[in-house]
Amino acid sequence: MSPKRRAPEPNRSAVTRLLLVLVLALMAPIASASAQQHSDPLEKINRPIFRFNDGVDRWVMEPLATGYDFVMPDMAQTWVDNFFTNLRFPIVLANCLLQGRLDKGATSVGRFVLNSTVGVAGFGDPATHFRIPKPNEDFGQTLGKWGLEPGPYLMLPLFGPSDLRDTVGSSVDGLARVWPFFIDPVVTTATTSAQTLNTRSLYLKEVRDARARSLDYYAFVRDAYLQYRQSLIDDKIGNGHGREPAASDEDLYFPTSDKE
C-alpha cells in the first residue's frame, strides 16, 4: 500500500471542491429536464433537508426574528437591509460586466455612490427614492446568461433552496466579497448573523402565509425559487420591457390536454 499520505492543504482542497462543483455544473445540461418539469432528481434527499431547515426556521429563526422585529423599529430594519444591499455593490457590478451589461453596471455604480454618500454609508436608499433602477445580478445569473442549465434542484442545509448553478454562483460571489479578507472572522460572523436575522424579520408574515396556504410547501418553495431565478436571468422582472415569449410558456399555457 502507499506510504504516508500528505495532509491536503486547506486552501487547495477548497479550490478542488469548487472545481469539482464547476465540472458537475458543466455536465448539468445533460441531466436537466425541460424548464416546466423542474429537475429534482434529488427530491428524496432534498425533502428531509427541507424538513430540517423548516424545523430550524420554526424553532430558532422565526422566534428570534419575531423578537428582533418587536424591538427594532421598522425604519431601522430597512436601514440595516439597505446597508447590506449596498455592500453587495462589487458583486453586482462584476456580474453586470460579466454579462456585458454596461448600462446596468453604470446604474449600480451610480446607486453605490449616491447611497454611500447622500445615503450615509448605505443606510439610506436615496437612489430608490429617485427611481434609479436596482440591478440585481449575481454569478448564478451570469452562468445562466452564459447558457448554463440550472442542473438539479438542491436544498442546502441551513442555506435553503438552490440549484447546482446557483450553488456554484454563490460560492464564487462569496469569494468576491471584499471584507472577509481584512476583517476579523468574529466580526464577519456576527455581521452575517445580523444580516440573516434582519432579513428574516422582514418576511415574517410572508413565510407564515406561504406555509399556511401551500398544499405542498416543499413543492411551493421549489417552484417559486426556480421560477424566480429563471425570471431574473431572463430579465423579466420589473423592467417594463417586452421580451420574447419563453419556450417553456408553450407547455404552461397550452398544455397537451387542451388540444383535444
Binding site: 398544499l215 405542498d216 413543492a219 417559486a224 421560477q227 404552461l252 399555457y253
Partner: peptide
C-alpha cells in the same frame, strides 16, 4: 408576481400530490 406564475406554482404543487 415577480416572475412567479401562479398557475405554474399551483401546477407544480398539484403535480406532486
Amino acid at each position: 408576481g415577480e416572475g412567479i406564475s401562479l398557475v405554474a406554482n399551483l401546477r407544480s404543487q398539484f403535480q406532486e400530490i
